[in-house]
Amino acid sequence: MVGELEFERPVVQLRNKIAELKEFTKSADVDLSSEIEKLELRLEKLEKDIYENIKPWDRVQIARHPNRPTTLDYIAHLFDGFFECHGDRAFGDDEAIVGGVAKFRGLPVTVIGHQRGKDTKENIRRNFGMPHPEGYRKALRLMKQADKFNRPIICFIDTKGAYPGKAAEERGQSEAIARNLFEMAGFNVPVICIVIGEGGSGGALALGVGNRMYMLENSTYSVISPEGAAAILWKDSSLAKKAAESMKITAPDLKELGIIDDIIPEIKGGAHKDVKGQAEEIDLFLKKSLKELLELSKEELVADRYNRFRTIGEYSFLKDYISI
């Protein structure tokens, strides 16, 4: 099988062995059906063991899987009549972010998301899904338009991070991200954010100030990549695996920390194994959250977003403190 990951190798090996045996019984005159049956039972147990106890680092690998479905893959399955809108009206069109209008079950919505490429050529065009300021400004333009026409906003988050480069700095990468956080706080429409792959730091958060936050089971969301964290903390980026484990970046971690509302279950072994099936899972969550949020007034929606982010953070007070 193409693109299998290391942690699932035992499953793949066993599955291959069973297939081999089945093939063998066809050609040779031996009855191995009881053995095959035993092995299949073992496979079932092994799958359960492995896929239900995926380690953080393995989740990082799934989130980065080259065949992992992208924003446009999900858009094609979830929405009707998607109309892509280009450009920030100021500098350029950043293809690392896609956005446009569409209908979700008949309801007009604005959909925006980071977009990785499927191959090298597309990745170069889309800058590996790492946006420049014009990408964030396009997203903001489309969100403002959604606000004007009273359309819910749905954001798919999937980026290693905002692009770190000279041109990006010159055009105000920080301002572009900051502006999105600021403006997203004030929209009078429901905003739903779903991390579908990697949620890389500020570049992810710039599409992430929502009334609802969901993560696909094998996606990650963190302040920095595990490699980056390892380099800063231990001056050794090869300790990324260790960093991934200690930084709490997986969906179950963020659920536990109360950052996200829910985990969207993934197809066994990762979303890349069945895009359509995965889209159906996402559909359930979109449906549920939109139904709830459309009940809220404009003021309630803004207040809801405020409260959600206002309450994040942990602290305590000392009784004996040093006074100045």
């Binding site: 009549g81 109309f83 209008v101 209908k103 079950r105 008949g106 309801l107 007009p108 449906k287």
Partner: peptide, 15 residues
């Protein structure tokens, strides 16, 4: 037409 229909108020929503 697609765009106008997305902007048409009061369409049926199939929950």
């Amino acid at each position: 037409t697609n765009l106008l229909e997305i902007h048409q108020p009061g369409g049926e929503i199939e929950w």
